[in-house]
Design a protein around this nucleic acid. Structure first.
Length: 240
DNA sequence: GTCCTGGAGT
DNA sequence: ACTCCGGGAC
């Protein structure tokens, strides 16, 4: 009921970065190039997503991939985490967490105390949980609840930056500028569906990599400022 | 040794 | 807005 932020007018309607045809190309690429095998995508409940995103925070997906099935089996909900806290801490420590795992226990206690042990879908309620910021809140809402969201993380910031050719500083991911830039990735500039957001994340990690981006394997290279530049350059100066 | 990543404290 | 956190990959 109260969605209007205090931003004066503001709606300048971000122009979409990707046309309908390029979104179609991304979806085609995603069918074969997406990381559909990631275990937290198989059974994407709000709890599983919250757990997975917490684990993924500071670790690579490969490392969590092996640990995740065991953890979800051992801890199917916040009650299990609270009940066997030391087991949780020990198990998650091997993934390279520490204080984050402790924070997660606090979040689980709040889930039990204030949300009947269930992960809430409201953004404000999610953000109120310890260790849950904008990224995890959006991920839980989108991947866990199926609500279209703009996922702002280093991957989508990098995508937006390279496609538009506009430099974006990832450290300012909370700034309005970056939020809008990432939002413009969505078809018609709106929040994307879970599948589309998975596609963006996979494209970012597998093709639009931090180092050595695979421009030639990119389904949207023709509309990407960075891709166009590189490919045009290679036409005259290939070699090396 | 350096960088990486999102949240929180300052 | 800036800085720290903690382990792994390189």
């Amino acid at each position: 009921m109260k969605k209007s932020r205090e931003g004066r007018t503001a709606p300048e309607g971000e122009s979409p970065l990707l046309s309908r045809e390029y979104w179609a190309a991304i979806r085609v690429w995603y069918k074969s190039g997406g990381r559909h095998h990631l275990p937290w995508r198989q059974n994407a409940t709000p709890w599983n997503i919250m757990l997975a995103e917490t684990l993924l925070h500071r670790t690579r997906a490969d490392a969590i991939q092996v640990l995740y099935p065991r953890i979800t089996e051992e801890f199917p909900g916040p009650a299990a985490i609270v009940k066997r806290e030391s087991e949780w801490l020990e198990m998650s420590r091997s993934a390279g967490l520490t204080w984050r795992a402790v924070t997660f226990v606090s979040a689980c206690k709040e889930l039990l105390a204030q949300h009947g042990g269930l992960v809430p879908s409201e953004r404000e309620a999610l953000l109120a949980l310890p260790g849950v910021g904008h990224y995890i809140a959006s991920a839980v809402r989108c991947f866990g609840f199926g609500i279209p969201e703009v996922i702002v993380d280093s991957n989508t910031i990098r995508l937006s930056s390279r496609i538009s050719g506009r430099a974006l500083v990832a450290s300012r991911h909370r700034s309005r500028e970056v939020q809008k830039a990432v939002a413009s990735l969505g078809e018609v500039g709106r929040p994307s569906s879970p599948a589309d957001n998975y596609a963006l994340l996979d494209l970012a990690t597998k093709v639009c990599r931090i180092t050595k981006p695979d421009h030639w394997g990119c389904p949207i290279r023709a509309t990407c400022a960075t891709g166009k530049h590189v490919i045009a350059g290679s036409a005259s100066t290939s070699a090396t």
